[in-house]
Structures are given as C-alpha cells and as structure tokens.
Simulated scan of single mutants.
Amino acid sequence: MSPRIEDIPLEEFDLSLAGMRIMNPDLVSRVQDSMWLHGQLQPVVAREHEGKYQILDGFKRVYVAMDLMIKTLQCQVLDIDLQQAKLLILSYNRPHQSMEVWEEAMVLEDLLKTHDLSQQSLSTLTGYSRSWVSRRLSLIGKIDEEVASEIRMGVITSSQARALIKLPRGNQIDLARVIVDLGLSSRQSDRLVDAFLKAEDEDQQRRDILNHPEQILWDYVTDLPEDPNDARLSSYGNDLMISIMKFLQPARTLFLRIGDPPNQNVK
C-alpha cells in the first residue's frame, strides 16, 4: 500500500516511540511559534499500529498541537513494520541533521536489543559505517542511567553529556547536577570534569569542585587575547564583548579575594 495523507484526530496518535527523541524545550517553543503564526506546514509521519497511528516523525508538532488545542493534524501514513519504522526515524532526520547524537544512539541501541541485530547489520540497514554505529552505541554504555534519563528529558544537553562520559558512572550524576544548576556551557563542563578527574582524593573532589565549582571556573578567566575581535559580530557586538571581558578581570580578582579563607597567621 502506497503512503497516503490523512487528517488524523490527536487522540488517535500513538507516541510510544517518543522515548527515542530528546525533549528539547527550546525547539518545542520554536515549533509552537511557527504553528501559531503559520499553522501546520508539513505533515507528521506515522504508521498504523494496533488501531492507532504510531508517530515516527513530528513529535514536537503533536505536542504543540495539544497545547494549542488543535483537533487534527495532517499525517502521512506508511504501511511498514516496527523495525522499518525505527530505521526511518534515523533516515527522516538525516538530510537536515536534526537528530542529536544521543538520539541516534538510543535508536541504534533499541534496534540492537529489540530486533536482535548485529552492529554490521545496523551499518548495512542505516547506510552508515560500522565505526559510526559503534561510536554511538559506546556512548550509551558509558552513561549512568539517571543521567541518561535527564538527557532524554532535555535537562542535560548533548554537549554537557559529552563531558560527563569521561567520568566513572558513579560520579556522573553529582557533576551533572552542578552543571545543570549553573547552566554551564560545553567548554565549562569540560573544565569542571577535568578538574574533578585531577583532584587528589574524594575530599578534594567534594570540597573544591562539587561545593565550590565557581572557583574552578573563575580560574580559567584569562587576559584579553591580542586580537579579541570576532568576525561574526558587528562592531557594536565586538565593543560589547571587549567591555564585558575587561569587566570580568577585576571582578574575578575581587571574587577570589572574597572567597579566600582568612589568614591563619594573623593574631
């Protein structure tokens, strides 16, 4: 049966494959803005499954439609089995690279376990190299379950997670909470993790890094580069960036002085 386009009521959609995608609130918000202004621009993709329509592509559009109280969505309905459906989740997002590496890893792991496929079979079916498949599966093996759950919920970003996998599983969730609470960038997350790994013992890890991560981060504030101009910014943007960097240098010194313990030799 060839694919067909239908208007499907929201209550008939099956979102059981949503666990293979990361819930990114920012992206959902962008889709909501677009659908509020322009309506649905392209159909969601689903397959018929147990009397419902199992979504393969367009999860964010379904979530937004629920929020906007839209009753139906245009849907491209495919006649495929579950294994083909999961492979299509990868292929639909391939041209515009909209899937994060962790999402690709979750789909591959599910195919490996649920459908008893080898890494070589996954490579053949997806059209990617075996090393591409292996690298993504290794990510899943290195991540703590609790951290993985936070990644799926969009609490921890993929860039933050890449820093966390350098840690033993037992230490990942503690550093993850610090990284999320402070909203650290990829580079800052790497710095914090590297400092944690270099700590002499568990006491130093907890005392200096988990309890006072700001001191580690401030230590990386350096002098202005010889040419601080960024070609991607306007002249106003560059002036603003330089002003902020100049402000940070004395602020760093003041911050560290305030945070220094009192001199024990002073009577």
Results as ranks from 00 to 15, higher is better:
Met106Phe: 15
Ile173Val: 13
Gly259Thr: 14
Gln188Leu: 03
Tyr63Asn: 02
Glu202Ile: 04
Thr114Trp: 06
Lys86Gly: 04
Leu240Cys: 11
Leu167Gly: 01
Lys86Leu: 15
His38Phe: 11
Arg187Tyr: 06
Lys52Val: 04
Thr114Glu: 11
Glu104Leu: 08
Asp260Thr: 10
Arg136Cys: 03
Asp194His: 11
Ser186Met: 10
Ile216Cys: 06
Pro168Gln: 03
Gly259Lys: 15
His38Tyr: 10
Ser98Asp: 07
Arg30Gly: 14
Ser159Pro: 03
Ser2Gly: 08
Lys246Asp: 00
Trp102Thr: 07
Asp33Trp: 14
Gln249Ile: 12
Phe247Pro: 00
Asp219Cys: 15
Leu192Met: 08
Gln32Asn: 10
Val180Asn: 03
Pro213Ser: 02
Leu27Gln: 12
Leu139Thr: 02
Pro9Ser: 09
Ser98His: 11
Asp110Asn: 14
His38Gln: 12
Asp116His: 15
Arg206Met: 12
Ile55Ala: 00
Leu112Gln: 13
Leu254Ile: 04
Ser16Gln: 10
Lys166Asp: 03
Asp260Ile: 07
Ile22Arg: 01
Val28Trp: 00
Asp174His: 05
Thr253Pro: 09
Pro95Val: 14
Met99Arg: 13
Thr222Leu: 09
Leu17Gly: 01
Asp260Val: 07
Cys75Ala: 14
Asn238Ser: 06
Ser131Arg: 09
Leu192Tyr: 02
Arg207His: 12
Ile70Ser: 02
Ile70Lys: 05
Val266Trp: 08
Cys75Gly: 05
Leu182Lys: 05
Ile209Ala: 01
Leu27Ile: 15
Phe255Met: 14
Asp260Cys: 07
Glu150Val: 03
Gln188Cys: 11
Ile216Phe: 06
Ala85Lys: 04
Leu184Phe: 03
Ser185Ala: 13
Val101Leu: 04
Pro9Gln: 07
